[in-house]
Amino acid sequence: MDPAGQSPVPDTLKIVVAGGFGAGKTTLVSALSEVESLHTEEVMTSESVGVDDLGGVEGKSTTTVALDFGRVTLDASTVVYLFGTPGQRRFAFMWEELAQGALGAVVLADTRRLADSFDVIDFFESRGVPFVVAVNCFDGQRTHRAEDVRVALDVAEGVPVLLCDARERESVKEVVVELVSLVLRLELSGA
């Protein structure tokens, strides 16, 4: 692509971070991103979603969906992008686009509103996108047990569920490591 060879074009990996309103998506992406969390928007028209899917935005012909993302350069030829996307079902058209070609996903669950994660979990399961559940503990204490959350969310045995603090870079790294490890296990098992 660049015959002069001055600017090597990296290969990219995409990770989707999905969670309910205020679950900490932007915080998580920023904690790992090497650039201040980037931001763009998609204009959603009744054409880009099925009209039936408009849910809460009925009567509006267009609405703007904010999308924040971060970049992590692993080396000159490998860059990871993290995309945060809202977990409400009316944003499913964004999930479709983001899930396409994604390495995997992080479902960011908010312990105060676990039910907000049901829809995205269903979605990733149905699309066969590998995902981990990261439980963002807002009460400051890690009093929640990952296993209780697993039961509440009814995710399969093979899906990692771990506690995290989206504000802590090390904690976010742990979440991403967990996801990539899961993908590696899938790759090795031929799944």
């Binding site: 990996l13 490998t78 990539v180």
Partner: peptide, 9 residues
């Protein structure tokens, strides 16, 4: 994937 894991760590 192993390289990616190593780099992230």
């Amino acid at each position: 994937l192993r390289m990616v894991l190593e780099r992230i760590r």
